[in-house]
Design a protein around this nucleic acid. Structure first.
Length: 294
DNA sequence: CGGATTTGACCCGCGC
DNA sequence: GCGCGGGTCAAATCCG
């Protein structure tokens, strides 16, 4: 199924110049085709090639879903620091569903986290992830005809919900690996049906089942995202670390899909002043488009 | 037949 | 307190 999709998107996928609307993430731009850092790295795999966190030398949040202590895994909803624009013609946005001031929320993150964990323990065992600290998330947008982009992992769809103010439903996927707690959400922009927003939550604790771990000639290992090229990746917390990021992060293209024609654009976050309460995607995309057109 | 998908129901957080 | 919306569960269904 995904194979079919990957074929289709070979010609259709390209990065959208828009940012995602993901609420609580760190944005940082990257440029593909220049390095071997695959998108998969962004999902984790510290046991393989250096993750993006390693490369950026950013304190890596405890992304292990099973980690006993998640103090560094700041709840995504608590992280709202945004990057500064890196290029005049680039823009990205992390809209927030909450209007709470950044500093306020970040201050209380640790305590809230601990409290939350305490409360969760005291509460009756709830099956949902709401009992657990929120996983680190990042998101990107691609322009694709297919919703579920091949990323090198196997996903099982466990839900689909209609999105308010959007004709397109949001799909929920979970990594099929029983030991892996990574989830991803996929939805389309209501303004541009060709734009697919993918949000990853958590970190893979296993190698890609579809791609060999080792890759020759410096090709990105365990290829995962020939079609889906994150133009805008976001992380919770530590965002300021990326503010001055000058090293282009990239996704390799075509490692397993050489014909994939993916165009990427450097994508940076606008100044915080531009990032207030964009909320839903439909609120974001237009502003970004406007900004890009400027 | 096993795994993946669909889909309605349910739970929870949040805003009013 | 109530309603809404997001996220998840799980039974039913589909598909290879």
């Amino acid at each position: 199924m995904e194979r079919k999709e990957s074929v289709k998107i070979e010609d259709s996928v390209r990065l959208s110049p828009f940012s995602d609307h993901i609420t609580d993430m760190l944005d940082f731009s990257y440029e593909g085709e220049k390095s071997s850092l695959g998108f998969v790295e962004l999902l984790g795999f510290q046991d393989f090639s250096p993750s993006i966190f390693d490369i950026l030398q950013v304190p890596l949040p405890s992304m292990e879903p099973s980690a006993a202590t998640q103090t560094s895994a700041v709840p995504a909803a608590s992280s709202e620091i945004l990057n500064q624009p890196m290029t005049p013609n680039s823009s990205s946005i992390s809209s927030e569903s909450s209007d709470a001031p950044n500093d306020e929320r970040t201050k209380a993150v640790d305590e809230e986290d601990q409290q939350q964990q305490k409360n969760n323990k005291q509460l009756k065992p709830k099956k949902t992830s709401q009992n657990r600290p929120k996983e680190p998330r990042f998101a990107f947008m691609t322009q694709s005809e297919v919703d579920h982009l091949e990323d090198g992992y196997r996903w099982r769809k466990y839900g689909q919900k209609a999105v308010k103010n959007s004709p397109f439903p949001r799909s929920y996927y979970r990594c099929t690996n029983p030991t892996c707690n990574v989830k991803k959400r996929v939805e389309r922009s209501c303004n541009d049906s060709s734009i697919v927003m993918t949000t990853y939550e958590g970190k893979h604790t296993h190698p890609s089942p579809l791609i060999p771990r080792a890759s020759p000639a410096g090709l990105p290992p365990r290829s995962g995202f020939p079609e889906a090229l994150p133009m805008h990746v976001t992380f919770p917390s530590h965002q300021t670390q990326f503010n001055n990021l000058s090293v282009p992060l990239n996704c390799y293209l075509g490692a397993t899909n050489p014909t994939a024609s993916v165009r990427e654009r450097r994508f940076c976050t606008p100044s915080p002043a531009l990032l207030r309460d964009h909320g839903l995607l439909q609120d974001i995309v237009p502003s970004l488009m406007m900004k890009n057109e400027e």
